[in-house]
Amino acid sequence: MAAKDYIRERFFPHLWCPGCGHGTVLNALLRAVESLGIGKNEIVMVSGIGCSSRISGYLDFHTLHTLHGRALAFATGVKLSRPELNLIVPMGDGDALAIGGNHFIHAARRNIDITALVLNNRIYGMTGGQYSPLSGAGVLATTAPYRNIDRSFDVIKIAEAAGATFVARSTTYHARELAKIIKQAIEHKGFSLVEVMSQCPTYFGRKNQQGGALEMLQLFKEQTASIGSKAMQEHPEIIGRGVFVNKKAPEYCQEYEAIVARATSA
C-alpha cells in the first residue's frame, strides 16, 4: 500500500501554514506505518486540540479528535478495551505537557502500549503564538512580549522519569531518521514517546527572528546531534537525537489480564 492510501485526500490541502513542520511529521508517520504493513482498521489515532491534533483528520484510520490535553486519557480507554489495536497519539507541546501534563505522566507510569508523539514547536500555534511549557526562558511570544521567564521542560527526562519504556527524539529536518524512530516506537510494547522538534515559522520563527522554515530547519541540523556522537561529546549544549530509552517492562493491558486471571480463579 502506498502512503497516499492512508490519507483522506478530500481534506487536502491541509490547514497548516506554509513551512509548518507538522506535514513532515505526518509524512514520516505514514512511512513508518507503511513499512510496518499495519492495516488501516488496526490503528486508532487519538489527538487533542491544537495544530498537531489536526493530523488525525487527514488520516484514514479510526480517528478520535478529543479535548485539549486529554488525548492520552481517551486513548487509555480505547486501548484497555481493545489491546490488539495500535494506538497512536499525536499531541502538541502545550497539549501534552501543560494542560495534559498529568495524563502524560500517568500514561507513561502505567506503561500502557500507546505511541505518543509530541510535536514540539515551542509555541501555541492555533491560538496565535503564546508561550508554552517548552518555549524556554528568553523566548519571545505573544504573551511574552518582554521575553519569557518560564523555564522549559525536558520531555525526554520527564517521560523517562515517569516510566515510559521507549523514549526518543528527532526533528523534522531528519525526516528519514524520524520515520525509523516512529516505526520503532509503534513496534515497542509499552508506552513510547517520540519528541519531534517541529518548526513554526509563522509564530515561533517570526517572533524570535529565526527566519523562515528553511532557516529553522537549518537550526535543527546545527543544534542537534545523534546521542553518543563525537559532536555531542565536544559540545554538551547540543540537543541529542535518537533513542534515549528502550527497555522491557510489564505492559498495562497484559498486567490487567493477570488481574482477570486472579479474579476468575479466586
Binding site: L64, F74, G77, V78, L80, H103, H106
Partner: peptide, 11 residues
C-alpha cells in the same frame, strides 16, 4: 477528567 475521557474512549 481522565475518568470520563477513558469511559468515552471505551464506549
Amino acid at each position: 477528567i481522565a475518568s470520563i475521557c477513558a469511559i468515552i474512549g471505551a464506549s
